[in-house]
């Protein structure tokens, strides 16, 4: 039992200082203000909002039943093209991202200007969305799978290069030191010291990016860069909703398959 004196002497304890409490209140206020401002700016039209379930039901009715006869005639080929765009684009990205990732890693290339230049390349690759890259390459090479492949590749360089560079920077310096002490040249230090350490990370990044690229290459066709997106665009423009349904199911299926493949390969490789 605590004596009254002990209770009186117990120091007051608060989770936050008054300053912290004020800051937390200010942050809450800012978040609420931001939500209100954004709702006002997107100009929700109440009539359309009320109407939405009805429109949705109408669209689904038009899609049902999907007309599977479209699959062999147009969808299959587009689907295969999508996978090819994703795979070849990922492969190209890996080849281009490896040297940039190495240049970005400070422990491998101890020159801050070079690191910054490499990081600039990686950031610019990532700052442009694949759809924008695709528009760019459609402008240069004309519509088709080549533009899509390059769009995927250029968007992926930043992703792969950044993560690979970070993996290199996290490599243990001890083994590298041992190889240096043995008089190993730079290339051998890379292949014997760094590569075994970053190999699991590298394959993990490559698989993850391929998985993303399968999904991204499915929409590239909307801007004419080949793949199943082009078939989707055509079907929508022709109001062939039963064909749209087939394409959506096909995209869903391929994404699930990619997911399964990645999980299986990852378990075996890493």
């Amino acid at each position: 039992m605590a004596s009254p004196a002990a209770i009186r002497e117990a120091p007051a304890w608060h989770r936050f200082t008054p300053g912290q409490r004020l800051a937390r209140f200010a942050i809450t206020l800012a978040i609420v203000a931001a939500i209100v401002a954004s709702i006002r700016s997107i100009e929700v039209i109440p009539e359309f909002l009320v109407d939405a379930p009805e429109q949705m039901a109408d669209l689904l009715m038009r899609m049902w039943p999907p007309d599977w006869s479209h699959y062999p005639s147009t969808v299959h080929e587009a689907l295969m093209e999508t996978i090819h765009i994703a795979s070849l684009g990922t492969l190209l990205a890996l080849v281009m991202a490896l040297p940039v990732g190495v240049l970005a890693a400070h422990n491998l290339v101890p020159s801050t200007p070079v690191n910054l230049a490499a990081k600039l390349v990686l950031v610019s690759s990532r700052s442009v969305n694949s759809l924008v890259w695709a528009l760019l390459f459609v402008g240069i090479f004309g519509p088709g799978a080549l533009a899509g492949t390059l769009a995927i590749a250029f968007r992926s360089i930043g992703f792969v290069g950044k993560l690979f560079g970070e993996a290199l920077e996290e490599a243990q310096p001890g083994p590298i030191e041992a190889l240096t002490a043995a008089g190993a040249p730079w290339v051998s230090r890379m292949t014997f010291g760094y590569w075994p350490q970053v190999k699991p990370a590298f394959w993990s990044i490559a698989l993850f990016r391929w998985d993303i690229n399968v999904r991204e290459s499915a929409v590239l066709g909307l801007v004419g860069a080949g793949g199943i997106g082009m078939a989707l665009d055509a079907a929508m423009n022709l109001f062939q909703w039963d064909r749209v349904a087939v394409i959506l199911v096909a995209i869903f299926a391929i994404v699930v398959v990619a997911e399964i493949v990645v999980t299986q390969v990852r378990q075996r490789v890493i």
Partner: peptide
């Protein structure tokens, strides 16, 4: 050179670690 923390390349085999002494 022999190190306190051994400094082997952990993911390589013993043979590869020995041969890494010949990298020079």
């Amino acid at each position: 050179m022999v190190f306190q923390e051994y400094n082997l390349v952990e993911r390589l085999s013993v043979m590869e670690n020995l041969l890494s002494g010949r990298l020079g």
